[in-house]
Design a protein around this nucleic acid. Structure first.
Lengths: 183, 183
DNA sequence: ACCGTAGGAGAACGCTCGTTCTCGCGTCAA
DNA sequence: TTGACGCGAGAACGAGCGTTCTCCTACGGT
């Protein structure tokens, strides 16, 4: 098995376990068991657990925003594209293994102790907000709307994570629609 | 020192440390050092750390909702009372030791592993949402508004926790005002 | 004064877990 | 064929921490 493959398998295991059970409760030995990558190899690829955590969050960030953007791209009407964000949240919330927002969860777990993780969470959230802002601008809507829609999306993510179910996404979408109509 | 006092001091230390640094990174020895209550006494009062955590969350829940309600009580106009929720969030976010919503953080840390903690978080959030619903009803506004305002408040809490600052509260209040005006 | 008990300080125990080390095996170049 | 090397399996090490135990002191009732 070459390094690139081992790395991917390690990250696959990390994502599955860290996201599903939390970061602190997953040991490097669990990663080894799930990934099939030996401890020696793991430590060659990632000198410490913290770096595996960072790589996990970074890869997930790229994929998460990619999936969101891909969904939005399916629409052309600018206002429809904004609402598509909430459609996608609903789809995401409904996935079998959905356990809330990985960054909000990680922040609750490590934000107080790891500045690196805290920075990654802030960067991810800023990127998401910037993306929303670009959609708002493209739709010719007032910039101030960005903050409202962002808060609705964050509220939906945290609520869906805690209570389960997809309803928060639908509620957020309706609120968003109403705010957009109010101009 | 009598039992009641020891219990209060233990809970004071637990709240300060658990909220400030996260639950898992605080040891029972830290609680002892901060509270001045000996380990033996701590284990008499709380047979295991998990029970101290539960007591911490429960006492904080009562106080948090009490403070919110007290702030809302200062107003009589029903719509003003709803907006006062966001005023209070802004005040809370601005406090020196604010580190986000204790329940969202705890859920990120322990929600996947402790059903008890997960239940407490859900109960707290349900109580908050029910309270919002009662304010919405009292103001003669449509029930559907509750979900929107709740998501705005949750989004503001999680965002203020991650990025710091009080701005999310102001943004949420403006969005809430707009939604209430849209009827 | 004397005993029984409660309580404090802190050592001790057992477990988990991040990280490193040992050992043995297979591979490949010369 | 041989020897150096990479790698996997898993033991080992060391730290942190939840929990319990030991020992000692203080005090209240008789």
């Amino acid at each position: 098995m070459d390094s690139a493959t081992a790395r991917e398998q390690a990250l696959d295991a990390a994502e599955k376990l860290f996201y599903g059970r939390g970061i602190q409760s997953v040991g490097m030995d669990d990663i080894r068991g799930t990934s099939g990558v030996s401890l020696k190899r793991l430590y060659q690829l990632f000198p410490a657990k913290e770096q595996l955590v960072e790589a996990y969050l970074e890869r997930r960030d790229v994929r998460w925003r990619g999936r969101l953007a891909a969904h939005v791209e399916r629409h052309t009407d600018p206002e429809r594209r904004l609402l598509a964000v909430f459609d996608w949240l609903e789809e995401w919330f409904g996935e079998e293994d959905f356990r809330g927002c990985a960054w909000i969860n990680s922040y609750g777990e490590l934000g107080a102790r790891s500045e690196r993780v805290a920075d990654q969470v802030r960067a991810h959230k800023r990127a998401f907000r910037d993306y929303l802002a670009s959609l708002v601008t493209a739709a010719g809507l007032p910039e101030a709307l960005t903050g409202s829609l962002y808060l609705l999306a964050e509220g939906a993510m945290v609520t869906a994570g805690i209570t389960g179910g997809t309803r928060p996404a639908a509620e957020a979408r309706e609120a968003a629609r109403s705010l957009m109509a109010a101009r």
